[in-house]
Amino acid sequence: MPLVEIQNLQLDLTVEAGRVRVLDGVDLSIEQGTVHALVGESGSGKSLTAMSLARLLPEGFAQRAGGRVLVDGRDVFALDAGALRQVRGGIVSYVFQEPATALNPVMRVGDQILESLRLHQPDRATRAEVEAWLRRVGIPAPEVRARQYPQELSGGMQQRVMIAMALAPRPRLLVADEPTTALDVTIQAQILDLLMDLRRELGMTILLITHNLGVVAEIADDLSVMYAGQVVETGPAATVMTDPAHPYTKALLASVPRLGAGNQLLATIPGAVPPAGRPPTGCRFHPRCPVAASPCGVEVPIPRSMGGGRVVRCPFAVVGAVAGKGAA
């Protein structure tokens, strides 16, 4: 059984203009012990999908309009407050892009980790355990660092503290939402190595949200691609990246500049992402799709299984047609 199973999730947000549907039929299944990457352009709904896993969005602001979210077999939207608290931190933990805004500026970092332990693992809430975590995430002189405030640490160190805080309660699933986007590449490499080490050591499952397809290629087992509030393609990362089936996935991969490729022109996707809650009719990608045909503007494509774990939301998608292209 997958650790996470999102089925046809529909989510509305109440914004100035009224109620808008920002997720419209999201399916996502995360297997135990895997690194599952979620990619897609800004505004496609990656963070909202991730926050739905622990129902982190305020009730008045976000309403589930349909579908289910199962985490470790539990229907998250049916849980009472107590059970939900157990899920948050105990089963699902989060690391966000900006450690500076996620950490409390007036609390020593050691105390923040201790707090997180008290909440979920009271019997392990000790200074020694805090220092052990700081050491584990690669922070030298943990007894000194534990007494410092977040702003006294560099961005890379702050992210390590965030990771320690998220992992100290020993969650089953770590949701890392753009954890390295604000960091330099050399520091990004350190943080990704750390996540992979910890995953091996603790047998964790990771949902990694990123816009960096290079990061996906390096560490993800599975990959889901979002577009305008829907998952348009999902499957094993290696095969999706070398043999993308959905036209959007293809276009996205082609537009990424590759190091060592010299300076030829990049492929581009014409037009822009539709505004939230106002998607085009039919297939949401059809106005920008290079292979759109007449049904695309009217018929909403339904997710179609193509074998090998691949599910694609496009009736014209084929796999294997361009086998080996990615390796060229």
Binding site: V185, Q188, L192, L213, A217, A238, L253, R258, L259, A327
Partner: peptide, 8 residues
């Protein structure tokens, strides 16, 4: 340190 897109 630049993550490479091409696994191969």
């Amino acid at each position: 340190a630049v993550p490479s897109l091409d696994r191969n």
